[in-house]
Nucleic acid binder design. Structure first.
Lengths: 141, 141
DNA sequence: GGCTGTATTGAAAATGACTTTCAGCTTCCG
DNA sequence: CGGAAGCTGAAAGTCATTTTCAATACAGCC
């Protein structure tokens, strides 16, 4: 998603596009897969060195609320973020040894109506995270 | 899993069974689906009122390490726990409105070899969480 | 049934990932 | 351009969880 497209989305919700937010956007784009606020902060500072970590948190919240990014929860107590790409819902595989995270592009979950859910429940979103070993770590262990 | 079976598992790893751990085990059994440390603490105190929250955290860690319980991550910044039942791997559905959590018993994920993973990756575990609305909340919104 | 080495416990303090507060600054609608 | 409303950074605050530490209690061994 280009900066101007993101700016539009933000404005549509009464938010503003700022230098800081552009820096965070650039960092998200540059880093790629599921990075946490600190990594994003560090990277964004290359573009805008005065950027505060607090601003990164606030920007990421805004991005998620407006559908520009989405949060990834790997269960290690910190939230990671991915830029939303149009239509491409995806998941992640995490190496249990080195922590590397990679994308899994196709979503293999059966349609919600085919899951046998407890009575009454309707499913609108799901999260799937895979854990295992990357090639390099598998060879070593 | 009965208390004595749990005691064996703990001892097999050089750990001990204590009154406190029995209380946590009873609480896990009584509460059922995916409850957090605080809820478990509150419940376990009915049996052993002096029980400290710290002990609950430590006990849950031990249980998870020894396969007596497992952690459930719903992405709200606190970890929940389920007692392990023999063989029954399951997932959860969470109501986005009232927060109710229910079990989804069958696991619908294709076999790992049928997932197209990034090259080199091997998957050993996965986590799947579903989100949507329970019958009561769906009716109201 | 005691002894004893070591795991376990609870209280208090520490940690770490966020969140809030607040005064000053910046966007952007008009 | 003007100014209301959104944003920013620093410092302080939350909150779930972890660590520290001295006292206690399991459990294998006489």
């Amino acid at each position: 998603m280009r900066a101007e497209r993101v700016a539009e989305r933000l404005r549509a919700r009464g938010r503003r596009m700022t230098v800081q937010r552009r820096a965070v956007l650039a960092a998200l784009r540059a880093l790629g897969c599921a990075r946490d606020a600190e990594a994003i902060h560090a990277r964004a500072r290359r573009v805008y060195p005065h950027l505060g970590l607090v601003t990164v948190y606030r920007t990421l919240d805004a991005f998620v609320a407006d559908g520009v990014a989405h949060a990834v929860h790997l269960g290690d107590g910190r939230v990671r973020y991915d830029l939303s790409e149009d239509g491409a819902h995806h998941h992640h595989v995490v190496c249990l040894r080195c922590g590397r995270v990679a994308r899994v592009d196709r979503c293999h979950l059966p349609a919600p109506r085919r899951l046998d859910l407890p009575r009454g429940f309707t499913v609108t979103v799901h999260r799937l995270e895979l854990f295992g070993y990357c090639g390099r770590c598998a060879r070593r262990s």
